[in-house]
C-alpha cells in the first residue's frame, strides 16, 4: 500500500516537472498579488505590517485556488482517474497521494517564498517563524478542500470561476486562524492556540477530505 502511495506521488511529481512552466506560474501569481497591495493601499510601514497577515493569506488562498485545477483536470480527461478506482488499492489512499504530490508542487514553493514576502510587507522578524508554521499547516488544508471542489467540477468545461464559488467559503476558517496566529505573533503574544486549531483542522481534513474527494470523483465520472 505504501509503495502504491509513493508510486503515485512520484508519478505526479514527474509529470509536473516535465511541464515546468506550470510549476512556476502559481508562485509568480502569489508574488504579484502580494505586490499589488502596497501599490493599491499604501506603502506605509506601520499600516502594511498591520495588514500583512491578511494579505499574505488572502493571496495564498487565491494562489491555491488557481493552482487547484491541475490536480485532476488532465487525469480526468485522459482517463487516469478511472484507473485509480480500478486499482486494487483503496482509492482514498491513491487520492491522498495525489493531494500530497499537488501540495509538494504548489504548497512547498510557497513555504520557501513566504519569508521573503514577509520582508516585503514589513512583518517583524519575531513573527516570521509563526507565519512559516501557518503556511506549513494551512496550505495542505487548502489542497485537501480544494481537491473536493475540483473533483465535483471535473466533468465541466471551464469550471474555474465555479470552483472559486464552491471552495472559497470553505477556506474561510483557515484564513481566520492563520492570519489570527500571525497577527498575535506580530503583537508578541503566544499564537499556539490558533496554530493548534489550524492543526486540528488539518487532521480533520486529512481524514474526511479523501472520502469526499473519492465520492465526488465517482459522481463526476458518472
Amino acid at each position: 500500500m505504501l509503495s502504491a502511495l509513493i508510486t503515485i506521488i512520484r508519478r505526479d511529481l514527474l509529470v509536473a516537472f516535465r511541464r515546468r512552466s506550470e510549476l512556476v506560474n502559481p508562485i509568480l501569481f502569489y508574488v504579484i498579488v502580494i505586490t499589488l497591495f502596497p501599490l493599491g493601499v499604501s506603502p506605509d510601514h506601520e499600516f502594511l505590517s498591520k495588514l500583512a497577515p491578511g494579505v499574505v493569506w488572502v493571496a495564498a488562498l487565491l494562489a491555491a485556488l488557481i493552482s487547484m485545477e491541475s490536480i485532476f483536470r488532465q487525469d480526468f480527461d485522459d482517463g487516469s482517474v478511472e484507473q485509480l478506482f480500478l486499482s486494487q488499492h483503496p482509492p482514498t489512499l491513491l487520492i491522498l497521494g495525489k493531494v500530497i504530490a499537488h501540495w509538494l508542487i504548489t504548497g512547498l514553493p510557497m513555504l520557501v517564498i513566504v519569508p521573503l514576502m514577509a520582508l516585503l510587507l514589513y512583518i517583524p522578524e519575531q513573527a516570521i517563524p509563526t507565519l512559516f508554521l501557518t503556511v506549513l499547516i494551512g496550505t495542505p488544508i487548502l489542497s485537501l478542500i480544494g481537491a473536493i471542489g475540483v473533483a465535483l467540477t471535473a466533468g465541466l468545461r471551464g469550471g474555474g470561476v465555479l470552483l472559486g464559488l464552491l471552495v472559497l467559503p470553505l477556506y474561510i476558517p483557515v484564513l481566520i486562524f492563520a492570519s489570527a496566529a500571525v497577527s498575535t505573533a506580530i503583537e508578541g503574544l503566544p499564537s499556539s492556540g490558533h496554530l493548534a486549531m489550524l492543526g486540528s483542522g488539518l487532521i480533520l481534513a486529512l481524514i474526511l477530505a479523501p472520502l469526499a474527494i473519492s465520492a465526488s470523483l465517482k459522481i463526476s465520472m458518472n
Binding site: 465535483l152 466533468g155 465555479l162 464552491l166 472559497l168 470553505l170 469526499a212 465526488s216 458518472n222
Partner: peptide, 29 residues
C-alpha cells in the same frame, strides 16, 4: 455564499441527476 455554491453547481451540470448528486455532496461537505 454556501447556498449560492450549491445552486451554482447544480445549475452548471447539465445532466440533472448528476447535478443533484454533486450538489448533495457539496451540501454534506
Amino acid at each position: 455564499f454556501l447556498y449560492f455554491g450549491v445552486i451554482a453547481l447544480y445549475s452548471s451540470i447539465e445532466d440533472k441527476r448528476v447535478a443533484a448528486k454533486a450538489a448533495s455532496m457539496l451540501a454534506v461537505v
